[in-house]
């Protein structure tokens, strides 16, 4: 049985090798034919055939190449997305960019309690302006109000909000006092050593802004607070 298999394999190999040689010999022995006048119909049909094939090949190659490009773009987008969303500063800038598209004059609001940048918003209050690089630190619920703390390096400010009829305790000993206007309402500004205070109201709530930031910054913050 094995001998027959071996024999068959041997014969198959011989035939295979001989076939290749025969193909070459037969090709070599074919005589050169005389030229023939093909009809116009045939010539046109052949031209059309070649044109169709050319188009097919181009389309095939374009599809193959576009797949490669699509994969490359996908990888780039994924890499960029991971980088952007894993770095907070980039994430904020990216979201800012997205929200600014199509808008002309809008305030950007971040709906998280770790707000940083130029605004802050929570369920309780929206600060339309925060000095640059100040970061939200903490918030505390107080009686019927809330207290928020923001910090940047050694500078900080706190905003305390409570109903307008509640009592606000403010230390003004040895402080310079000044009356100013915030959103059309009378406000009080006080400066004592490194601590500045700004107190104002809007008929519903009273606000106390305290910290070691400048008066102009305090006024800017106060004017953009929304409760």
């Amino acid at each position: 049985m094995n001998e027959n298999k071996t024999f068959d394999k041997l014969i198959d190999q011989l035939i295979h090798d001989a076939a290749n040689i025969s193909a070459d010999n037969l090709g070599q022995n074919l005589p050169e034919p005389e030229p023939v006048e093909f009809s116009e119909k045939h010539n046109l049909a052949m031209k059309k055939l070649f044109k169709q094939e050319r188009r097919k090949i181009i389309i095939r190659k374009m599809i193959r190449n576009s797949k490669k490009v699509a994969i490359l773009l996908l990888v780039l987008v994924l890499t960029a997305s991971i980088s952007i969303f894993s770095v907070q500063a980039w994430r904020v800038k990216f979201l800012n960019f997205i929200m600014n598209i199509g808008q002309t004059n809008s305030d950007i609001q971040f709906w998280n309690d770790n707000g940083s940048g130029d605004t802050y918003s929570s369920d309780d209050v929206t600060l339309g302006y925060i000095p640059e690089d100040f970061k939200f630190v903490s918030s505390q619920a107080r009686m019927n109000g809330v207290s928020l703390l923001f910090q940047k390096d050694e500078n900080s400010f706190a905003l305390q909000i409570q109903p307008v009829d509640a009592l606000l305790a403010v230390d003004t000993e040895k402080a310079e006092m000044e009356k100013i206007i915030i959103n059309g309402k009378e406000a009080l500004y006080s400066s004592n050593n490194n601590t500045n205070l700004l107190v104002w109201h809007d008929d519903i709530y009273s606000y106390l802004l305290s910290g070691n930031i400048s008066k102009s910054e305090m006024v800017r913050i106060a004017e953009k607070v929304q409760k």
Binding site: N4, L14, I15, A18, A19, I21, S22, N25
Partner: peptide, 18 residues
């Protein structure tokens, strides 16, 4: 198989036969 002898010329013989 017993009647077949494979030699160096077998390939060319088969080629001619093809």
């Amino acid at each position: 198989p017993l009647n077949i002898l494979i030699t160096k010329e077998s390939v060319s013989r088969i080629g001619v036969a093809i």
